[in-house]
Design a protein around this nucleic acid. Structure first.
Lengths: 227, 227
DNA sequence: GGCGTTATTATGTATATACATAATGACCTG
DNA sequence: CAGGTCATTATGTATATACATAATAACGCC
């Protein structure tokens, strides 16, 4: 039995309430003997379940089944083109606006730059099968662009361009529900006052902020994940 | 240097484009020699980065920096009470409805039960500091309840009760933006036509479907995650 | 009994070694 | 040269062993 086998058997016992929530399960050594594997193999299996939030492990105290399991769902944050193509539709995008602009206060706070700092403002419409799929508003720190030159983004979307040309970065993401403004509705081809699914994402490296994006998906859009 | 040290150094090289996207990085053996650690230690570090979506690993082909990194953001799916208490507010909940009902077609499809199957219908309001926080509509398979008896859910919310009394389960989650109906708006204390953040979650075990929940958060609610 | 110190213990990590597995690329054959 | 076969190779996993670490439990002192 490999580590996945051990994991599945432990999972079965948790689900089957052989080991109910809150209960301390046998130690790695004991399980290794029971399953006839090395302790390292048991460790790998239990570590995996702990990372998934089903077990809580503490040195000396042992391993117990999580009382209130904070399940961890993993979202795949993909590039919009991938998302559209995964639906079997043809991807396209149009740059609506592209200029230098002082960032709004909210964006400045989110990215940690001085208020009034000048960044590249981009407004883009992403298309799926020729129809509006998502409306994007983005502020981009030109300091991180190689050579300080802002590309046209007419062939490659800013998202994709950044992924391929700027260092891998960390960031945070916020999802919310809002009402489309009339301008946003017009861009997305929906009526004003219809609900939009908003994704806001701030990205930065250790050295500098990179970009803040606000992405709007029209009614019917669903973000899916498995637990 | 431990495995986290190796991971951080590799991450630094990826971010610093020492190893640009698409490039094959040195093999585990070579890195182990360079860093002065065992191959298992390098393996642990690279595996971690691969799980995060930054590296792509294939036997024989080697390890390369992801060209289009599908970043994996982990959402912590917690119990609503925890979420409210994490905001420093007092949690409460009220059961609005509780009856047996034939499931709507959409729910039947989502849970994989026969259309028209009878399940327990629950309508609940979650409160934060006495004010409406989320509106919950739930269908619950009574077959999975120990003894087939439906609890009152007046002390413990259905969510929490299920976590503690029914086997750990798998499921899927969908997030979307919708407009509140007048009934929903009334329950949440908002105006009809305001946008709501919708979380729909289906849960089941290998044996049977457990529950389908539709959770509505009013305007201002934000789902946050880090990448 | 209260409180700080120490011993114990389960998990965490590191290592060398060995073999398994999958995918590539070279080779061989028709 | 096409196409299938096989050797090669990097990662994947398993193992025994050793030591590190954190947290508890036991101890002993005042």
């Amino acid at each position: 039995m490999g580590w996945e086998g051990v994991r599945d058997e432990v999972l079965r016992r948790i689900r089957g309430r052989v080991w109910p929530p809150g209960e301390v399960i046998p130690g790695e050594e004991a399980l290794a003997v029971e399953f006839g594997v090395a302790r390292a193999t048991v460790n790998r299996a239990l570590r995996d379940l702990a990372e998934a939030g089903l077990l809580e492990r503490r040195r000396k105290a042992g391993t117990r089944v999580a009382l209130l399991p904070v399940r961890k769902a993993t979202l795949d944050i993909s590039i919009i083109r991938q998302e559209v193509e995964a639906r079997g539709e043809v991807y396209g995008h149009r740059v609506l606006e592209r200029r230098m602009e002082a960032v709004p206060l909210a964006v400045a706070l989110r990215l940690g730059v001085a208020r009034g700092a000048r960044m590249c403002f981009l407004e883009t419409l992403h298309l799926a099968g020729g129809r509006p799929f998502a409306h994007e508003v983005r502020w981009l720190n030109i300091a991180v662009l190689p050579g300080g030159v802002v590309p046209e983004f007419d062939r490659l979307s800013a998202n994709e361009w950044l992924v391929q040309n700027v260092a891998y970065a960390t960031g945070d993401i916020e999802f919310s529900a809002e009402l489309a403004t009339s301008a946003e509705a017009a861009a997305l081809g929906i009526r004003a006052g219809e609900p939009v699914f908003v994704t806001e994402r701030a990205t930065w490296t250790a050295e500098a902020p990179i970009t803040f994006v606000r992405l709007l998906h029209g009614p019917g859009y669903r973000l899916r994940t498995m637990v």
